[in-house]
Design a protein around this nucleic acid. Structure first.
Length: 270
DNA sequence: GCGACAG
DNA sequence: ATCTTGTCGC
């Protein structure tokens, strides 16, 4: 009888984890956490109309927002469907979608999600770019964290750096990091005077700003967790996320998730 | 040292 | 991530 724990703790060799940590630390040197893009974020409807006399700003307006997600087969947990969608920010309609069904042998290890999911997502992005396909995303929303990560380099950062595209991390659950945990977030949201607030900056014990918890919809009790991925500031990331929310989960991520699962069904998995 | 821990 | 029923909302 092996000395296997009855629990389902995920772990892999310390050697591999050390190697992964080196890669994260190395890639992190290329990380940019301020706005680094040529377009401008749309503000009010009025300003987008050309009746505005201040036409000195010739930058393009953000229009194409991407979203990526990976779903897994319940029958064979190693089979995954990775999905890339691009939405028109004005209509929140999908203008592009692509899938890749693959076998993933690398396990999910907290803190190392990128080593499992980034490769296939990168393939989808590179395929779109090399094919000169239209609607290549000006910014990409990723199902996972960015700076809100044990070493400040989650999947959103990882993908952003390798694809050299602006990214924002979207977590549906809090990754406990730097002293941040559910009870502290709960305490933030329920604090007197914060009942009507919808954005809560997340500052760790170290004093650094790791991201923000936001109530994306009025009726959403449970927040989502936004963090900087690459080439975008937290303030800009929050603005863009707010513009893409019809429901709690921002539409690019939500559509990627829905279509990813539909893709598995069509292929007889599910 | 042990537990907690995005998807 | 995935396993699941009913239920509420648009």
């Amino acid at each position: 009888m092996e000395k296997e724990h009855a629990s389902v703790k995920t772990h892999c060799s310390p050697e591999l984890q050390n190697k992964w940590i080196e890669i994260q630390d190395s890639l992190k040197k290329s990380l940019k956490i301020e706005d680094d893009f040529s377009w401008k974020i749309p503000t009010s409807e009025v300003q987008n109309l050309e009746i505005n006399t201040e036409n000195l700003d010739s930058r393009a307006i953000l229009k194409y927002v991407g979203g990526v997600d990976v779903s897994f087969s319940k029958t064979d947990p190693s089979i995954a469907c990775a999905t890339l969608v691009v939405l028109d920010l004005n209509t929140l309609q999908v203008v592009y979608e692509d899938f890749s069904t693959v076998q993933l042998d690398i396990p999910y290890v907290p803190g190392f999600l990128a080593f499992r999911e980034a490769p296939v997502l990168l393939d989808l992005l590179e395929k779109m770019k090399k094919g000169s396909l239209p609607f290549y995303p000006q910014i990409l929303m990723v199902d996972g964290n960015g700076l809100l990560h044990p070493r400040g380099f989650g999947l959103a950062c990882h993908l952003g750096v390798l694809a050299n595209v602006p990214t924002v991390g979207i977590g549906k659950n809090l990754h406990h990091v730097d002293g941040l945990n559910q009870s502290r977030v709960r305490q933030l949201l329920e604090a007197e005077g914060n009942l009507s607030k919808d954005v809560f900056t997340l500052i760790g014990d170290s004093g650094s700003t790791l991201g923000a918890a936001i109530r994306s919809t009025q009726d959403a009790l449970k927040p989502i967790f936004i963090s900087v991925g690459h080439r975008v500031s937290l303030a800009s990331a929050i603005k863009i996320v707010k513009m893409s929310c019809r429901f709690r989960v921002p539409e690019p991520i939500r559509q990627a998730d829905i279509r990813s699962k539909a893709c598995l069904r069509i292929h007889g998995l599910s």
